[in-house]
């Protein structure tokens, strides 16, 4: 059973269509990243799942409940983009309040404060917190009551690399416990190893939905091979294989996925002249650019 089912959902504000016929499913324990530029419709989609914004057409089902219903809210955790709290409260007071709203014992709130690394600052007023600390309070409240569905809008924006890493560790734990996680981001590199599936949203349309390996295969993006040669042979290798000289002694080659092995064979044919070879698969950035480019998606209007 899916934790979240989105069927052909559209959202129109006046004449502006911000979400167009999006369908998406997330099963328990799955981590799905929603990728897109600002204004691609990520936040609108999340707001519709939460019932904060009415759906213009289509259907959303949250664990068998209507979006925005009390039952759906009880099973959902949400971390809004640039989360804000009342500055006059301490982190602990704020989280205890949320625990009461979710009918969760306040001891769980204390445990979560510790889990997100805020126990030392829990009794300070939130207006003294840094952006990263507020974001941690935000994550902690989203985890209250072990939600079955977690919606995290740009959860790591404004965080330093170590905090990002800790954030994803917590999200992994949550997913391992059976929670379906939908997170939006445009920090692409960190998603490569941290999500099971990637959904690319551009101008309100879902252009791709699949695992990173699937998306790579579908995109037919060229594989790049970086050859580090001996200084005197670099020119020869570049000329013979049709590559591009970089950094003095290196050559960057590019070929379709299926010709990779043949090319590697030719590279190794140079024997002693080659010191090292690196294979660089298409990065998430390239995939993202490929799918969201107007001519590259292979999607028709």
């Amino acid at each position: 059973m899916s934790c979240l089912r989105i069927d052909n959902v559209s959202k129109t504000y006046g004449t502006l269509q911000t979400v167009r016929g999006v369908s998406l499913r997330i099963v328990p324990g799955e981590r799905v990243a929603l990728l897109g530029h600002n204004g691609a419709g990520k936040t609108t989609l999340m707001r519709m799942i939460l019932g904060l914004t009415a759906i213009t057409s289509g259907m959303i089902d949250v664990l068998g409940h209507a979006p925005g219903s009390r039952a759906a809210h009880a099973l959902t955790g949400f971390l809004p983009e640039s989360v804000a709290f009342h500055g006059a409260l301490s982190g602990r007071e704020q989280l205890h309040h949320f625990a009461r709203l979710k009918s969760v014992p306040v001891t769980q709130a204390d445990a979560l404060l510790e889990r997100v690394g805020l126990d030392h600052a829990a009794d300070r007023k939130i207006h003294t917190y840094s952006k990263g600390m507020r974001q941690r309070v935000g994550l902690a409240q989203a985890l209250l009551g072990r939600p079955r569905l977690a919606l995290l809008d740009e959860p790591t924006s404004g965080l330093d690399p170590i905090s990002r890493h800790e954030f994803y560790d917590i999200i992994d734990e949550l997913a391992a416990g059976g929670t379906a996680v939908l997170l939006s981001s445009h920090a692409l590199t960190e998603l490569e190893t941290r999500t099971d599936r990637i959904a690319i949203l551009s101008k309100g349309r879902l252009l791709a939905d699949g695992s990173l390996a699937d998306l790579r295969r579908q995109a037919h993006l060229p594989v790049r091979i970086q050859v580090t040669a001996r200084r005197e042979s670099a020119e020869n290798i570049a000329r013979t294989l049709g590559g591009q000289r970089i950094n003095g002694a290196s050559v960057l080659l590019s070929c379709p996925q299926e010709e990779k092995l043949a090319l590697l064979e030719r590279v190794t044919g140079f024997g002693e002249a080659v010191r090292d070879v690196d294979i660089i698969p298409a990065s998430l950035e390239e995939l993202y650019r490929h799918y969201s480019a107007p001519e590259g998606g292979g999607e028709t209007e």
């Binding site: 707001r47 939460l50 904060l52 009390r70 809210h73 989360v83 804000a84 709290f85 009342h86 409240q141």
Partner: peptide
């Protein structure tokens, strides 16, 4: 304005 309303409205209460 502060942005606390949207989060509050995603909790199970009317």
């Amino acid at each position: 304005e502060r942005g606390t309303l949207a989060l509050g409205l995603t909790y199970p209460l009317s």
